[in-house]
């Protein structure tokens, strides 16, 4: 069984979950724990938005099937079976990405990879809300990463040098 792809997300859910499913797809091989929690977060978001239209139900059932299968396949991965370890895993990964982007930014390296790192780290900080309220620090980093990704992107498009 393969993961329900980005193209199959119904229109009623696309705006809310597409970005998290994309991060999941990008991490399926690189870090299956990150992929698992991105899909879990997308599942929860989607269920809160639309679980009654036939298209949404069909998508949600296939996403749930895949999540259950992933959890079984990752039976030796404690971060999937214990959400406290899972939370630490996602948090470390998000912060590592954030620090990479921040260091690159401060070194004057502005590129698509820096924008993407800021953006992905902020999305993973969204995913962290699965485990409860965010700490003040993470909340601050999440806002900064979202703003910075938009800002650098705007500068690159308009030809300005980011400050």
């Amino acid at each position: 069984m393969s993961a329900p792809g980005i193209a199959t997300i119904p229109p009623s859910l696309k705006g809310a979950i597409q970005k998290y499913i994309r991060v999941a797809v990008e991490h399926d091989k690189r870090d299956p724990v990150i992929a698992y929690y991105c899909r879990l977060y997308a599942m929860q978001q989607a269920m809160a938005i639309d679980k009654s239209s036939p298209e949404a139900r069909q998508y949600l059932v296939s996403l749930m099937d895949f999540l259950e299968k992933s959890k079984n396949q990752l039976k030796d991965e404690q971060a999937v079976h214990n959400e406290i370890i899972g939370q630490a895993h996602v948090e470390n990964y998000a912060l590592k990405l954030f620090l990479y982007a921040d260091n690159e930014d401060r070194a004057g390296h502005f590129g698509k990879n820096v924008i993407k790192a800021f953006l992905t780290s902020s999305l993973l900080m969204d995913v962290l809300t699965t485990f409860g309220d965010l700490s003040e620090d993470i909340e601050k980093n999440r806002k900064y990463a979202k703003w910075k990704a938009l800002y650098i992107n705007k500068c690159i498009q308009s030809g300005e040098t980011p400050i």
């Binding site: 599942m43 929860q44 259950e68 079976h81």
Partner: peptide, 29 residues
């Protein structure tokens, strides 16, 4: 017509409950 509608919505809410239960089970450690 209304009887069919009621059956349809009962079925839909049963499926929604099933998804919620599966989600809760998935998150059990």
């Amino acid at each position: 017509g209304s009887a069919i509608g009621a059956t349809g919505s009962t079925q839909a809410s049963a499926e929604q409950d099933e998804l919620s239960q599966r989600l809760a089970k998935l998150r059990q450690m």
